[in-house]
Design a protein around this nucleic acid. Structure first.
Length: 494
RNA sequence: GGCGCGGUACCCAAGUGGUAAGGGAGAGGUCUGCAAAACCUUUAUACGUCGGUUCGAUUCCGACCCGCGCCUCCA
């Protein structure tokens, strides 16, 4: 079997085969850095990350480029509002975005910033103009002439056949030959950021940066282009038009789009009060791993209903997996091997792979791993799991985590960093008790904890339960959970 | 209005032409000094509604209701 993905361009699930052997070249539309990223943004980025990770697990080399759009209308407006330069304004949000992505264990792609590629954009536009696909308006703006590109609409399945070249349909856009023509280059306006280029002063239109940077990093034709579903039209349609008009070659083979999420059953919007940035959620005390797990749980083409109840459930699920790994890694098992366990691990791995290969069915992959966890836990309880069985089971779990990336228990330092940010930004009032609880466990060092636990064990052996319970309570209050098991003591930070 | 997606148990959510994965939550039980973890049992006889095709549909077709997306830079 091989990976099958839904391709927006063909509107079908197709086998994914890169142009060049096992080399995948993919481009994902990244953030416009005008504000903090919200969970809707991160659903898309997590989906792309899951794709990237699974491609790599499938033994592809992945060259993954993502743009940072650091100039656009909102950025210019907000920077002016704050009285700072565009660069200064975007630097803050770019940094925040990268931190948030890292907190969600999103692997960092090769980054490409729009403002670093202005001269190339000008060159690209000049070439389009030379070929007749672009024209200059009176004010110095450039537009793409859609009528010259008959395939326009092939991605978004829109029919623009009725449009005629030269028809002036929109009086407000008198500069354009056709209302559908889109801006490649915007003439400067007073007070706005502007660049001097070979095609004159101004700033780039919205779509041009992705065409220029993707081709520069990946070539004229590459394997896969990703983004949120809203980008299908006009953004990606326009990218195709520009790029294919310029080169006469197909732009990207696969178009991958992640569906929008709902929050508590409704579209996320500021007016509904259900609009959350990643940082908002962490301030409420939710772990980055819970958020990632929830975002990755629902296959990327389905609407995901993001709820606080779901977030709690995700946290519990992640704990279950972490507990399982800890038990497997730290327990003493009887010598030998139980062939059924290796078989279980193998079978789970295959089910997981089959699920992922089916258009990244993450829900199926999860079902496979949870089935394995239950069966292996039962085997441990009944003594059927032997010493040599741990390794293959752990390996299957690691395989799962190469995609889901939630097992490593490093939530607390990430939450602490966001706590520090909130203080620096004067947002202490948004810090929840839950967040304080979550980061409190960081205050005791491992050595301190081990010492306490040694005291506790000594008290237990002496059957001084009053003292041991007091120590347990003390540690619990500090966010440390101690477990006594047949194989000895284990502890973890809650 | 045009194009597209979805409606599965208390919640989240897979899936299939032959009567339903997984997680969470609830109930009961095992284990246990306490706690935690874990395991077992249990929780959908209309899988939005109404028709149709079929030996048989939740799965295919049609209509309807509801939710969602794009169609003016929102991932």
């Amino acid at each position: 079997m091989a990976l099958r993905l839904y391709n927006t361009l063909s509107a079908k699930v197709e086998e994914f085969r890169p142009i060049e052997d096992n080399q995948v070249r993919m481009y994902a539309c990244g953030p416009t850095v005008y504000d903090y990223g919200h969970i809707g943004n991160f659903r898309t980025f997590v989906a792309v990350d899951v794709l990237r990770r699974f491609l790599r697990q499938s033994e592809f080399n992945v060259r993954h480029v993502m743009n940072i759009t650091d100039v656009d209308d909102k950025i210019i407006r907000n920077a002016a509002r704050d009285g700072v330069g565009v660069k200064q304004y975007t630097a803050k949000y770019e940094k925040a975005f990268l931190e948030d992505a890292a907190a969600l264990n999103i692997e960092q792609p090769i980054l490409a910033r729009a403002t670093d590629h202005i001269p190339e954009m000008a060159k690209f536009i000049a070439e389009l103009a030379r070929k007749g696909f672009a024209y200059r308006a009176e004010d110095g703006s450039y537009y793409f002439r859609i009528a010259k590109f008959p395939a326009y609409g092939k991605l978004s399945k829109k029919d623009f056949a009725g449009m005629e070249d030269g028809a002036r349909v929109d009086v407000d856009e008198y500069d354009k030959d056709n209302a559908r023509d889109f801006a490649l280059w915007k003439a400067p306006k007073p007070g706005e950021a502007s660049w001097e280029t070979s095609i004159g002063p101004g700033r780039p239109g919205w779509h041009i940066e992705c065409s220029v940077m993707s081709m520069e990093e990946l070539g004229e034709t590459f394997d896969l282009h990703a983004g949120g579903e809203d980008l299908i039209f006009p953004h990606h349609e326009n990218e195709i038009a520009q790029s294919e008009a310029l080169t006469g070659k197909p732009f990207a083979h696969f178009w991958f789009h992640a569906r929008f999420l709902l929050v508590e059953g409704e579209k996320m919007s500021k007016s509904l009060g259900n609009f959350f940035t990643l940082r908002d959620l962490v301030l409420k005390g939710h772990k980055p791993s819970s958020i990632r797990f929830l975002l990755a749980s629902v296959p990327y083409r389905n609407q995901l209903n993001f709820t606080f109840d779901g977030l709690k459930q995700a946290a519990t699920s992640v704990d279950r997996l972490r507990n399982f790994r800890m038990r497997l890694a730290t327990s003493q098992f009887p010598a030998g091997a139980n062939p059924a366990m290796a078989e279980l691990a193998c079978e789970s791995g295959e089910r997981m792979k089959a699920g992922m290969e089916d258009d990244l069915n993450t829900a199926q992959a999860q079902a496979a791993i949870f089935d394995m966890v239950r069966a292996a836990n039962a085997a441990m309880d009944s003594g059927q799991l032997k010493k040599e069985d741990a390794a293959p089971l752990l390996a299957a779990l690691e395989k799962f985590d190469e995609i889901f990336a939630v097992l490593k228990d490093d939530d607390a330092p990430k939450m602490k960093a966001i706590y520090d940010w909130a203080k620096a930004e004067g947002r202490e009032k948004d810090v929840s008790q839950e967040l304080l609880d979550a980061i409190r466990a960081q205050q005791l060092s491992d050595a301190d904890i081990e010492t306490k636990i040694a005291e506790m064990e000594q008290a237990r052996r002496a059957r001084n339960f009053k003292l041991s319970d007091a120590i347990r309570a003390e540690l619990a209050a500090a966010g440390i959970l101690v477990e006594q098991t047949k194989e000895g003591v284990r502890w973890r930070r809650k």
